[in-house]
Design a protein around this nucleic acid. Structure first.
Lengths: 376, 376
DNA sequence: GTGAAAGCGCTAACAG
DNA sequence: CTGTTAGCGCTTTCAC
């Protein structure tokens, strides 16, 4: 058995090959192959012998050798920023589920938001022969991005693979990439309308990320809703703190401090509601508000975006926009696999809807700093 | 270009091969290979020509062909129930991060808790030549399980691959599998002690799953702590509702109903605190308690397990046991890759600690149903 | 029906 | 230094 030196890494040992199975069964390699793939008529007796030998040896085919000669395994790759984001995790699960149900293998890669790692991963998937790669999540759409994605699309396409963009734009409609995303503008418009209907006029958007397509669309929907209610453009107040619980917490704390200080008050308009860029930002904001001794929704109303699984467990349960993330993932592979010719360059928009919980109520009658202390 | 029939699935087209690069550069395939692997001295001029040609053709090596001749790519596979569980997602992220930092590729597979799918996935990983497979999550340890895992271990080992079990037991210490897990019993013991110190005596454990190794260990720690505080064995009350938010919600609702009904009261002992099997169960329980018009921690104290990222955003922020999930994932690959000889059969236990937030306080002085209505 | 033989794309000896 | 050659393990014609 092994020597007593600790080796650094596992090295692939020689595995049982089809030849050994053939010898044991007393047939040729070709026959074994035929039995195992089951696509060729083979008499039951031979068949049984081969199966027996294969079982005895605990044979598993070498996927690489098989891929080399055949078309290779059907594999789809999902690329996302991180799996620990509930939203991305759901998308990944959707892709995985849809892929698995069709007998495809699914590979998940994370980039941490680094374009370089994204590029490396896509390259890797080309080498591995992935037939479908799904890029998930909003991005800042600059020239570098456009060039990168155009290259992915071209490269993947020339290898017969497909590219689908989830929640991010195609650099060019003529490029062989399919985009599937939520209608962020409509969702943001709707939830802003919900706040407006409750009587709020000072609504701040927390979590802008200029250049990020998903967030920009939400901001656009927010501004549009404000305008439709006859509010002047200055009524819009977007804080570009980016996404994440920590960012939301920090920005909200800061905002609260500014509003509490008369001098700073002029620059930071008064507000009675916050529209968080996503539910994680909302979580941070909720926490900051509580820490400041204020209550949601009594003093400030808060809404989020995405309706992550735990949004109803927040304090208070969060009113938010439901984006069926798992369905996004499923749709990505379903559409990409359905009719490629029509799909390439197509743009699919998935609908969203508001889910009302307890984080919104009409604004208080008196400004916060003039109100009596609320009962303890 | 393409015909106008919609094809069903993307079929791998012929990709650019090393031979084409060689022809374009006017050298042999071997030279191209040498330049690209960079492990052989090649004059700068030739090198440049080859690189140029490779770039022009947008060549990427065929990973399968490469794997067939070389050892294959360094690949680790993580298998878990689902990625949408915050805890599992963190473990996966840990594995991914540690793997990536060593230049290994990481593949994530989900089973939905189905042993059959688990088996298929492990088989698949054998075919693909994964060098390390990490199985994550507690299981019910029956004979079928033991046999299955023994088989994985043997099969993987004979192919030179390694198996690591995260949070699940090895069927036999002599088997070539490494186990890395948290000390569930100690964690449960500690948090039960925390409840006991606050004065609670009626503590129900919500979320048992008989046979599941992780949960059984937590229940054991819970019982041990109760016993140490001089409580009789009957003081332990475990509700076997299993894991998940929905299960926690349902079970808690039921429990509350029983306790509120004098007739049922005898069978369901009175309690002032609940120890949820994990944070998701806690989320459901919290919600159920609120819906019943009770308050946490005023009327009932609640603790969870795992300290998932949003536990501090629950209502109220949850006191729970922190299990560094990402570290579990990192440790799994780190240990497995470090010294295999010593590692095989080894058992690593990772420590946990309590994180105190706002869901625990001393029990109320008067039983719930005799207390006056709390102020609205 | 079943075996022999020809590669799939690449790397690693082995010559020159 | 660089080209030629021999496979890696498998599937798939093409004969028998």
């Amino acid at each position: 058995m092994g020597n007593d030196m600790a080796e650094a890494e596992p090295t692939a040992k020689r595995r049982v090959t089809i030849r050994e199975v053939a010898e044991r069964a007393g047939v040729s390699m070709a026959t074994v192959s035929r039995v195992l793939s089951g696509n060729h008529p083979v008499p039951a007796s031979t068949r049984a012998r081969v199966l027996r030998a294969s079982r005895d040896l605990d044979y598993v085919a070498n996927a690489h050798a098989r891929a080399l000669v055949g078309g290779g395994r059907k594999m789809v790759a999902v690329v996302l920023r991180q799996v620990t984001s509930p939203f991305y995790a759901q998308v990944a699960e959707g892709v995985e589920a849809e892929a698995a149900s069709r007998g495809w293998l699914c590979l998940v890669g994370t980039t941490g938001g680094d374009p370089q790692r994204e590029l490396e991963f896509v390259q890797l998937m080309r080498e591995e022969g992935a037939r479908l790669v799904v890029l998930v999540g909003g991005v800042v759409e600059d020239d570098a991005y456009r060039e990168r994605v155009a290259h992915y699309a071209q490269a993947l396409d020339s290898a017969g693979a497909r590219l689908v963009l989830c929640g991010r734009p195609s650099p060019d409609p003529d490029i062989p990439a399919l985009v599937v995303e939520f209608d962020n503008e409509a969702g943001a418009h709707a939830i802003t309308g919900h706040l407006l209907s409750a009587g709020h006029r000072g609504i701040v958007f927390l979590g802008g990320l200029p250049g990020n397509t998903a967030l920009d669309a939400r901001v656009a929907g927010y501004r549009a809703a404000l305008a439709e209610h006859g509010l002047p453009p200055e009524a819009a107040h977007v804080v570009d703190c980016g996404l994440g619980r920590a960012a939301g917490h920090r920005a909200m704390t800061q905002l609260l401090k500014e509003t509490a200080t008369p001098q700073l008050r002029k620059e930071t308009p008064d507000f009675t509601a916050v529209f968080a860029g996503d539910d994680m930002v909302a979580a941070g904001a909720l926490r900051a508000i509580t820490e400041a001794g204020l209550r949601v929704p009594h003093d400030i109303s808060v809404v989020g975006y995405n309706d992550i699984p735990l949004a109803e467990d927040f304090n208070p349960p969060l009113t938010t926009v439901r984006t069926p993330a798992e369905e996004l993932g499923r749709a990505a592979v379903r559409i990409a696999l359905r009719d490629p010719e029509h799909a390439a360059g197509a743009h699919h928009l998935l609908g969203t809807h508001i889910v009302v919980r307890d984080s919104v109520q009409p604004p208080p009658q008196v400004p916060r700093d003039e109100a009596p202390d609320h009962p303890h």
